[in-house]
Computed example of a mutant assay.
Amino acid sequence: MQTYLEPTQESGRALFMRGIAGSVVMLNLLRYRAVADYSATPQLAPPTPITGEAAYRLYMEHTMPHLEKSGGKLLFFGRGGGFLIGPSDERWDAAMLVQQSSLTSFMAFASNAEYLGGMGHRTAALEDSRLLPLEESGW
């Protein structure tokens, strides 16, 4: 089973080639690990094992000040589950909508060294994820 936790160079290039003007909303779909895996960042690991969901909460606590400082905001965070329309064997534990004023501000946020210092919580937390940049189009 292929998993997706980080963007590729190609997907980053394609995002910028879209030429999104104005704000961008990122739709995040998240599937947590049963137990967080801190093997890549043991220095961030809590003293006792925690769930992937708890590790993601640590990631969000670390992330929110950096997101807000960059001009971004959390629009929605909610629990997921099975699809009403979609594959019956696919589930997402949570969905999140994050707005940034522009792709430039998103990239500044995503490359901020202080923010990146807590990314290990996200990696430990997630079994799989999706990130879909959304551009307002109106009717």
Results as ranks from 00 to 15, higher is better:
S39D: 15
S39L: 03
S39K: 00
S39G: 10
A40I: 00
A40G: 04
T41A: 13
P42R: 04
P42S: 06
P42E: 09
P42H: 00
P42N: 05
Q43Y: 10
Q43T: 04
Q43N: 05
L44G: 06
A45E: 02
A45Y: 00
A45G: 04
A45H: 07
A45N: 00
P46N: 02
P46S: 01
P46E: 00
P46G: 00
P47R: 02
P47Q: 01
P47F: 00
P47S: 04
T48M: 03
T48Y: 02
I50N: 13
I50T: 12
T51H: 08
G52H: 13
E53V: 06
E53L: 08
E53S: 05
E53F: 06
A54Q: 15
A54D: 04
Y56T: 12
Y56L: 14
R57M: 07
R57Y: 01
L58S: 13
L58F: 07
L58M: 12
Y59S: 08
E61M: 09
E61H: 11
E61V: 09
H62M: 11
H62A: 07
T63L: 14
T63Y: 02
T63K: 08
T63M: 07
M64C: 07
M64A: 12
M64G: 07
P65V: 03
P65C: 04
H66P: 06
L67C: 08
E68D: 08
E68P: 03
K69A: 15
K69R: 15
K69Q: 13
K69Y: 03
S70R: 11
